[in-house]
Design a protein around this nucleic acid. Structure first.
Lengths: 232, 232
DNA sequence: TACTATTGTCTCACTGCGAAACAATAAATC
DNA sequence: GATTTATTGTTTCGCAGTGAGACAATAGTA
């Protein structure tokens, strides 16, 4: 197995990414699973010696999701001593065997946290070399993650919630065309609370960021809603 | 000169701190000056191999300001390639001479940005080993700083402004007792705009975070204002 | 044809905020 | 000691935004 060469990466520095997707009702994130151990972890990686931090994360994301231009935001850097647990990484590496040159993987790491927002439907996640599966998990029902990864997700969610209004985050979580109800469900999933339908509609429309299309979505036994897209 | 030993610190990782103080009218920050070069820089440092990131910053701040429990907040991590300019660090080190073991200082660094809020009057800043002076500079009139340090200050200011209301940041910028006008001046200095006096008073009082003391401040030729302190 | 579920819009009361005005008062001036 | 000046504490008015509820419109179902 082609383990990364230590000389290719900055030592002691890693990133972890919280990849958010929205599947119609629930907010979900991508998790890697190491079957040999039964452990779950955030998709992460290292910073190449000639890569900017942002590029390193972007590249890791592309490899796992195939997406090229995703909404990416750095939210916090984790540097406590509690997150230094070499035995965890050793256990994960064990099935592959490790050599002297892999020792750098078991050193202390400071990790920069990023989150991404992607369109759930456009993605066929691919596991990386160390993990044998990758999948979507509801943020409300996450399994226990290695190290401080549960904490990292909480921090990411917090950041996302408090910046929801400033940026048009939902652009990245929905398909091109959507109904007002779809958009409301995204907001509700992120905020974790229900919103008043009439007031939500009024507020969003007043922002003047949506284009209304005359093609109506139909299928339900009731009045057909308008379809919208974001203005460019 | 006792340069830091490379084995004591995590390589490639640094921090830079933006230390805000308020001097009655203006918002200022601490800058180090390297007289031999005429360059200004943010007070920064490295992370000890047994130090958490937070502790490393706290320690560096204690050494330079003497303050022990300051308000500290991490706001962004800088990892672009543009900030890798070994000649800058070499020039700064030059007057002290450097040996083989100092080579790690000229490598690429990823820097974690923190800002601190401190009471201007309680502090007698001390320069560190490399810089021969340290002083306060108005954020509105900063000199040119090395590397991306001007950009780092901008990011810090932004973060401070957008989080002004959520946290009681001004607690740390004022003495124990203060007038409503003092508090308003802190807000105005941070936001960089003037606020309506009556509305500011109404809003702050409605937050129910201040204790009003009957001891009046006097000295001006006009009605004496109340003194306030923050509720604990 | 009547019914049901959902949608688009409107109304009403309440809150919060900008702007301006008014009354109170500590020190300075006459 | 009376008057003036500068600043403070509080109130008022108008406007915009928001929460909660109501009403009419309509695509499919019974």
């Amino acid at each position: 197995m082609p383990n990364p060469e230590p000389s290719d990466f900055l030592p002691h520095i890693a990133y972890d990414s919280v990849v958010f997707g929205f599947s119609g009702e629930k907010l979900k994130i991508l998790l890697m699973e190491y079957h040999k151990t039964g452990w779950f972890a955030l998709p992460g990686g290292f910073v190449g010696i000639n890569d900017s931090l942002d590029n390193a994360v972007q590249r890791g994301l592309r490899e796992r999701t195939g997406l090229d231009e995703v909404y990416l935001e750095q939210f916090y850097t984790f540097g406590s001593m509690e997150r230094f647990k070499p035995e965890v990484m050793m256990k994960i590496m064990e099935p592959f065997g490790y050599e002297d040159k892999d020792q750098w993987l078991f050193k202390r790491f400071i990790s920069v946290g990023y989150y991404a927002l992607i369109n759930y439907e456009e993605v066929e996640p691919k596991p990386d070399k160390l993990s044998d599966s990758i999948g979507w998990y509801e943020v409300d029902h996450l399994p226990e993650l290695i190290l401080d990864h549960n904490f990292i997700v909480q921090k990411a969610l917090n950041h996302l919630r408090t910046h929801l209004d400033q940026k048009l985050l939902s652009v990245n979580l929905l398909p091109e065309l959507f109904t007002m109800k779809d958009l409301q469900q995204v907001y509700e999933a992120i905020l974790g609370e229900e919103l008043n339908r009439a007031n939500f509609q009024r507020k969003i429309l007043s922002l003047d960021i949506l284009e209304r299309h005359e093609k109506l979505f139909s299928g339900g036994s009731h009045k057909a809603p308008f379809l919208y897209s974001f203005k460019k």
